[in-house]
Nucleic acid binder design. Structure first.
Lengths: 234, 234
DNA sequence: TTTTTAGGGTACGTGCCGTACCCTATCGGC
DNA sequence: GCCGATAGGGTACGGCACGTACCCTAAAAA
């Protein structure tokens, strides 16, 4: 009987883990079941991943590869709303439940969280900045809005809906409200502020170590590298 | 030996559960330990709460009773920043970790989530609306900003920091960034939109109550170089 | 071929959940 | 103050899942 080795086996395990994840959720994920489903035993699993959380995150990486492509309708509002709707569908799918469970499970251990972010969170930031950037070139938004924290406000609010209200799909009018009451006013409001010649906003601190008008790619890198350890003296 | 009954015993159990919660977190909360600590046995616990999640939420209710009082400095920016700092302290305390774990654990079961919200989330919305309302009466913000989703944007973004970055205390410049890049532009931007673009009256105050420099330690934190450590192998 | 590496099979020890019994202190009614 | 019903105390058990330890063998490397 042929015996799988190395990357072939690892792949089979990951696939089995991913299947178990969508079937039973993260809570119902067991090492035994994964090993059984992969046609091997826990030995081979533990030799590669130190525990359940690590395996779950690795398996999620395989699931999340289905990259969401960005809408490009020519209007900021429609772009944002459509992207938000896609994200909403993903959040309310089994995959979204897995993602939320995983985030919760990884919150305890910092190294796991880093792996999870690599698989999902940062890519999202790029998406939203891209949408916003196109709006800037069309003149729909000021360049000062090209800020990771600004660009991702909508999806952060949507995520919060799931945190607060549970796994229920967020109704569409919530998305509309987020876009019309928060996101667009925020972006356009920044336009109004900056158009009325009050750059006092970005003086002092900003000038030195946080340039507001940098290239979008740099803004992204910045966010990705922003993580820092607590130097806990005092 | 005296044998406690009824509400006295229930109280002792809740207290023990709350203590265990802050000591070991929700993940480390065990029914045995709670019973032992309360000087009783699992019997008495299960007679009152159907399982670990329900007990955890009930115990959290006892912890969360320490109501946060709202600052009232006379300036919207200072109020928001100060409130955000208090919330940040709470989030990064053991209590905050418990709250996040609990939210994650309750996401699966809807009825538990309802109980948890009653203990914490909704009160927060009122707080933020209150701050904003005072700003409106002072003329710092338009009445159109008095919208729950707008009012709570800052704390939602802060919560997201914890979701994405883990239990690390959010550095103060993140709070400042949230306030200056998102919250205030949002509120004032709405003013510009609704009051037909005359934000000139915002300018004077802006320069007064805006501190130029942050604490030196935090500025140092920001520069701390920590490239990613490889999370295990693949 | 011989040696080394890595998978397969299996059994354990441990921890915790949730339940079941049986005993006994306490409470409320008489 | 006695007496049944109620509820707490003690304990044991079944079950499950995690993580570990052996021992055996196929497959790759030397």
């Amino acid at each position: 009987m042929k015996r799988r080795r190395g990357v072939v086996l690892a792949d089979a395990i990951l696939q089995a883990a991913a299947d178990e994840l969508v079937e039973s959720g993260y809570a119902g994920l067991t090492m035994e079941a994964v090993a059984r489903r992969a046609g091997t035993n826990k030995n081979a699993v533990y030799r590669r991943w130190p525990g359940k959380a690590a395996l779950g995150i690795a398996a999620y990486g395989r699931l999340a590869d289905a990259a969401t492509d960005v809408p490009d309708t020519g209007s900021l509002r429609e772009d944002v709303l459509e992207l938000l709707r896609r994200v909403n569908r993903q959040f309310s799918s089994p995959l979204g439940a897995v993602q939320r469970d995983l985030l919760a499970a990884a919150a305890a251990e910092a190294d796991l969280l880093a792996g999870l972010r690599a698989a999902s969170a940062d890519a999202g930031s790029r998406l939203w900045l891209g949408v916003l950037e196109r709006a800037v070139t069309r003149g729909e938004a000021p360049a000062s809005a090209l800020h990771p924290r600004v660009a991702t406000v909508a999806v952060v609010l949507l995520r919060n809906e799931y945190v607060v209200r549970g796994a229920q799909t967020a109704p569409d009018d919530v998305l509309v409200e987020i876009v019309d009451e928060v996101y667009l006013p925020l972006v356009r409001g920044r336009a109004a502020l900056h158009a009325s010649a009050d750059p006092a906003d970005d003086r002092g601190r900003d000038e030195e170590d946080r340039p507001d008008h940098e290239q979008p790619e740099q803004a992204l890198d910045r966010q990705a590298d922003d993580r820092q350890h607590q130097p806990h003296h005092q």
